[in-house]
């Protein structure tokens, strides 16, 4: 049973390259939706590996929960956020991609050789004992005996995640409050408020943009005359200079 069978070898060598290609594709794909689809390929391959290695339950969970539910959630989120929300490609640390890749490859190489060295002359034991009453039953027994506390505590994790999603994403609707005339009047004459109408934006011979501030009597631009969300249009020196009509003609 523990000897590796031909079918397993064939499955492995077909799916392992696919899994690696999927992983690479996920990292390299420019489009977020394509990334997610590549990831699905990797996850499906992993699911098959688990099943082949006599872990049908974890294999099915991998396919149903990860590939099915979580990836669909990913896609929904991408759909809502908009898939063209592109990343900034400016590197704040120069050369970090190269260094990161080198270090990553180095770590992967180190781990792979280490694990290969360590497990080379291991004989696989205990699979029959673990799956004696069936794979699912064996897992269930462990979950509800030795690890029952850890299993229950994961619910705290789920509650935290739900509360967290709500805190970080939920905005209360600011309902339009009915305001009476008296309250409005009081608010208008509160200290710090300017009760009169605001000046309109500057309309000059040279510019009639709403982003051009009106000029105060002393020649300074009035910030009150433009909407706060508009960037102030800088006036050129020629525009700023007093017009000939003001200086008595030239």
């Amino acid at each position: 049973m523990s000897a590796v069978q031909t079918g397993e070898i064939i499955t492995f060598f077909i799916l392992a390259p696919l899994a690696v290609i999927g992983a690479l594709g996920m990292v390299l794909a420019r489009n977020a939706v394509h990334s997610a689809l590549w990831l699905i390929l990797t996850m499906l391959s992993l699911g098959v590996f688990y099943i082949v290695q006599a872990g049908p339950f974890i294999g099915m969970v991998q396919i149903i929960v990860y590939t099915g539910a979580i990836m669909m959630l990913f896609l929904f989120v991408l759909m809502l956020v908009g898939r063209d929300a592109s990343d900034s490609v400016i590197e704040t640390l120069r050369g970090q991609k190269v260094v990161g890749t080198l270090l990553g490859v180095g770590l992967a190489g180190l781990m792979a050789t280490g694990i290969y060295q360590a497990t080379r002359d291991y004989t696989v034991v205990g699979l029959e004992a673990a799956n004696k009453d069936g794979n699912v039953q064996g897992l269930a027994k462990l979950i509800f005996t030795n690890y029952v506390f850890a299993f229950e505590v994961t619910s705290a994790l789920l509650i935290t995640a739900a509360v967290g999603a709500m805190i970080l994403a939920h905005q209360e609707k600011s309902g339009v409050k009915a305001v009476g005339q008296v309250a409005k009047m009081r608010e208008r004459f509160l200290p710090g408020n300017y009760p009169g109408p605001k000046p309109g934006p500057g309309v000059f011979a040279t510019s009639n943009s709403v982003a051009t501030p009106a000029k105060l009597p002393d020649g300074n631009p009035s910030q009150r005359s433009i909407s706060p969300i508009l960037p102030t249009r800088e006036l050129t020196a020629a525009e700023k200079a007093d017009k000939p009509t003001l200086t008595g003609g030239a």
């Binding site: 781990m111 280490g114 694990i115 060295q117 360590a118 497990t119 002359d121």
Partner: peptide, 8 residues
């Protein structure tokens, strides 16, 4: 057996 696994 091989203690590498444990140390890793």
């Amino acid at each position: 057996g091989n203690i590498t696994l444990l140390i890793t």
